[in-house]
Write a protein that binds this DNA or RNA. Structure first.
Lengths: 179, 179
DNA sequence: ACAGGATCTGACCGATCGGTCAGGCATGCT
DNA sequence: AGCATGCCTGACCGATCGGTCAGATCCTGT
């Protein structure tokens, strides 16, 4: 196996650190120490602390964009079902990043670097709410969104997938649904 | 009205700041500036940054302890119902603190100052799960716990109470329930 | 052997962090 | 008047933060 490059090593350690103590709480010194290189090396590979975060989020952001595109073509009912499974899978595939972005959600999504994520998340939330404009449905969607994103950090195993999908479906199937 | 004391003013501003940018992200300078006093004044009223946080959490922690005691005497089914309403009310009454503690949950609950909160939250989680040991029920309870705590920051109005209780009930009534 | 780019580092920088300290300024008691 | 007490402050401290920079080291193609 092609020995992890320093760059990838940095990303892996930074992901763990950010998820563990938050973006502000993590220090370049600490990350460098854990990687086993100097702080200057971090800043050789990345323009700055922000750039590390951006590089970290990028893959998850791309998947989120893909999910968003996939949902766009579906009707409300199908979009909700697809949003639930798609979101759970996405979050399980990027535990640390998802947890990080949602632990500091309000603060991060304000910053221009992640401005493009906001409409994506809003769309996802809307899809989870079954495209309903009822505030109760929106609140339910937000609870599910934040709750799932927050619960996956530091938990092991993909075996929680079914449980997550199940709780999301229960929470989001509102009495308005006739079937 | 008895004009808010400096101490209370500090607590109010700190609560908003902590909830907004996180504990690590907030600075004493910033808080002092917003209060309209010097940083030294903060540290006259409180032993340190940690002490401000502790004072801030204390009332909510007391209510959590009271809720815990109330749940202890109930059977699983009744405890779950009471836990849902009690938790929603508690969180709505202490939006900022609840949001803060859950945005930095993993990191905070480790620190000795808040160690006593952990069993309380675990009990609450267990009650929400209907005292079930099924991992799926526990995961559902965690999603609801974190999702609700996270969604209330910066949102206005108590009118979300019904919606929160409703989504929690839907999410937590599992197929195992026979009624 | 050599050149040149990629990679990495120690030393250093200004800014800001949480926290300390001696003292200023009221107020009220004796 | 003198004195104590509560509240507040400016000046200052060491530590740590993110970030810069000149140069050492390694690797590869010629």
């Amino acid at each position: 196996m092609p020995r992890r490059s320093t760059r990838d090593e940095i990303l892996a350690v930074a992901a763990a650190q950010f998820a563990h103590v938050g973006f502000k709480g993590a220090s370049l010194q600490e990350i460098a120490a854990e990687v086993g290189c100097s702080k200057a090396t971090l800043l050789y590979h990345f323009a700055g602390k922000d750039a590390i975060l951006a590089a970290l989020i990028a893959p998850a952001a791309r998947e989120l964009a893909a999910l968003d595109a996939r949902l766009a073509g579906l009707d409300a009912r199908a979009a909700r079902a697809a949003a639930i499974e798609g979101f759970v899978d996405l979050v399980l595939r990027h535990r640390q990043e998802a947890g990080l972005i949602y632990s500091d959600a309000a603060r991060f999504l304000q910053e221009p670097v992640f401005a493009h994520l906001r409409p994506l998340i809003e769309n996802l939330c809307s899809a989870l709410a079954g495209r309903s404009s009822d505030p109760a449905d929106c609140i339910a969607a937000e609870v599910v969104l934040g709750g799932i994103a927050g619960v996956v950090i530091d938990k092991a195993g993909e075996d929680m997938r079914d449980a997550l999908v199940a709780v999301a479906e229960r929470a989001l199937i509102t009495p308005n649904d006739k079937d």
